[in-house]
């Protein structure tokens, strides 16, 4: 694999893991309130966010397997999920109001990486 596609696969997997973790995080009442100026999480949004979280994580496995094959891909994906969750926790503790924006932008970066990966 070329350096460019390794970078793209890494960004893509990280982005999906991060966005997935953001969805899980926003799916919890206390963090939802923390990130959105005390807003109350509705049961419907909660369900949706959980569903989105799981789908993004699943997509992350696919992206990682695409980049490194299944065996290495699964190991790398686990690492990406941990790393993404750690960075999310740091952001949440330093500037919680950025959480939603960051989640959406990172998802955008992930899509860009997907584009690079397909082209490269």
């Amino acid at each position: 694999m070329s350096n460019v596609s390794v970078l793209a696969a890494s960004l893509m997997t990280y982005a999906l893991a991060y966005a997935g973790m953001t969805a899980f995080c926003l799916g919890m009442e206390k963090h939802y309130a923390q990130a959105r100026d005390g807003a109350v999480l509705s049961p419907a949004s909660r369900k949706w966010l959980k569903a989105i979280g799981w789908s993004l994580l699943a997509l992350g496995i696919l992206s990682s397997a695409y980049g490194w094959g299944w065996s290495i891909g699964l190991v790398a994906w686990t690492g990406f999920v941990s790393a993404a969750a750690i960075s999310l926790v740091l952001l949440l503790s330093y500037s919680p109001n950025l959480l939603t924006k960051a989640g959406v932008s990172v998802a955008g970066i992930g899509l860009l990486a997907l584009l690079v990966m397909v082209i490269d």
Partner: peptide
């Protein structure tokens, strides 16, 4: 192999490094 992490190039190396620091 899982312990010595010689697979997966620099991506996996960096993930292990971050895991180690944490």
């Amino acid at each position: 192999g899982l312990h010595i992490a010689m697979f997966g190039g620099w991506t996996v190396s960096w993930l292990y490094f971050i895991g180690g620091i944490v």
